[in-house]
């Protein structure tokens, strides 16, 4: 057992490659046999990943899902921000500049619309739950933007840590729902071309959610959605503690 652990821990990233590869193989097999290709294999793989993250988190009490299990620590590196961003940028290889220009304006509009709309929705929900403190309402609204904007805004405004935790949870729910929901809703919202993918990325904003959601829908759309999504968190951090807080403060 000790030998087992030594080898797995020493080669953690390699173990991660093997485990993820196996997961994807199983997922594509299931997609093919059980759903006859109606559900994309990567959608199943991502869902399995989230499910595993839940059990990993439950078992270890840690905050990085499966990666907290000693033998699977490499998943943390493989699925971490550095590798994610590296691979996302690589997907831009082969993208035509003309496609980006076409959706340029709609892309920019979607980023601001996305941040503001998600914020309003989150803030309204907070008010409906009986919160009237502008700092709390703003922090929860910012959490509905992304799970990074929530804590950044909350700490800038001096919100309590339980409220910040709440805003992170709202952002995580959003991110997970985008991962799972996107392939299901793609057809209905016309998400099948580079232009709508850019608008989608700008509106949703959660980089992880958009990255996984589009991967499970149509990998060709990934670079377009990711491009706008990566500006979203920055815009959210810009607007949250400033203009949006002032507006909430004026209303409440």
């Amino acid at each position: 057992m000790e030998i087992f652990e030594t080898v797995f821990v020493r080669n953690s990233l390699v173990v991660a490659f093997a485990v993820v590869g196996l997961t994807i193989w199983i997922s594509y097999f299931l997609a093919d046999k059980l759903t006859k290709g109606r559900i994309h294999g990567s959608a199943i793989a991502i869902a399995l990943g989230l499910l595993a993250a839940y059990f990993g988190g439950k078992a270890t009490g840690g905050s990085t899902g499966v990666a907290d299990i000693t033998l699977l620590g490499g998943i943390g590196l493989m699925g971490g921000g550095m590798m994610r961003d590296f691979a996302i940028v690589a997907t831009a290889f082969g993208v035509k500049l003309s496609e980006l220009k076409k959706a340029g304006l709609a892309g920019v509009v979607s980023i601001f619309a996305g941040v503001i709309v998600s914020f309003i929705v989150g803030a309204v929900v907070a008010v409906l739950y009986g919160y009237t403190d502008p700092v709390v309402v703003t922090t929860i609204g910012a959490g509905a933007v992304t799970y990074i904007v929530g804590p950044v805004t909350g700490s800038a405004l001096g919100a309590d840590s339980d409220i910040i935790a709440l805003s992170v949870a709202a952002g995580l729910i959003k991110s997970i729902l985008v991962m799972i929901g996107t392939p299901m809703i793609a057809k209905t919202i016309g998400l099948n071309n580079p232009q709508s993918a850019m608008v989608f990325g700008g509106l949703m904003g959660t980089t992880s959610g958009v990255a996984a959601g589009l991967a499970a829908t149509d990998p060709k759309l990934v670079p377009y959605g990711a491009m706008t999504a990566t500006f979203y968190t920055g815009v959210g951090c810009l607007l949250g503690p400033s203009i949006l807080f002032l507006i909430v403060n004026a209303i409440l």
Partner: peptide, 8 residues
């Protein structure tokens, strides 16, 4: 991305 999902 699958690994990313597994570490959320």
């Amino acid at each position: 991305v699958v690994a990313m999902a597994a570490r959320q």
